[in-house]
Amino acid sequence: MKPRSFEYLRPASVDEAVEALARYGDDARILAGGQSLIPMLNFRLLEPLALVDIRHIADLSHIRLDGDMLEVGAAVTQNRLLSWPDLARHVPLLAIAMPWVGHFQTRNRGTVCGSIAHADPSSEIPLSLAMLGGEVVLQSPRGRRVLKADEFQTGMLSTAREADEMIVAVRFPTGSGKAAFREVARRHGDYAIVAVGAVSLSPSEILVGIGGAADRPVVRRYASNGGDLMSEIEALAWELETYEDLHASQRMRRDLVRRLAPAVISELRS
């Protein structure tokens, strides 16, 4: 279980980093926390010619409120954000969803943006970003562009990032209301079989997000006092293109949505 050879690059700036990406194209990978990337390298599932280590780039280590957005730089670890004292006030959903990300030891090194880049459909951070309608800031030698979460994540482990682009930051809208979150996994810290989040948008509207059930997070907006929420959820369960794996059948994923979503919504209302 040893990785194949690669070049190791440690650029001092974002410009240098994206230059390297431009040079290597698809053969380069950004290395930030490495908590998802390095297992795949050790399994020899990937064959990058170069790893571009961005952990040391000073411009990427910020946690910053910017207007109605919380911007998190690409070198910020999950635990750093989780221990940011104002997190629960500004982005309550993240504050309750992030403790479900991996373990203390992986959150110490794993980055917020790395989780977004990895785009696992079960992951809590991409689900949170999708629910809140956040943004991903990408940079390439051609400049910067900003994608909405649902434009960025295009499928299971796939994103709209171009080969010469790197995520420099993600932005979470602040000021959303109360949140509730719950997930089912085989073990605490495992990828969720199904994760459900709910956020109250206004007294009359809530957001419900589902992770783990389909190839990417699914977000729906419901009237919070609508009498037929249950049938909305039933309809949602069928709309999800659920998948089967070792731990759950397609049907079981639908059933988990049918059961978890009402529980999370009722927790939100309580």
């Binding site: 249950m230 039933e234 639908r254 059933d255 049918r258």
Partner: peptide, 13 residues
Amino acid sequence: TRDEPEAGAGDAR
């Protein structure tokens, strides 16, 4: 769980 209700059939339980 027993048979799953058809899509659109309402509460699955």
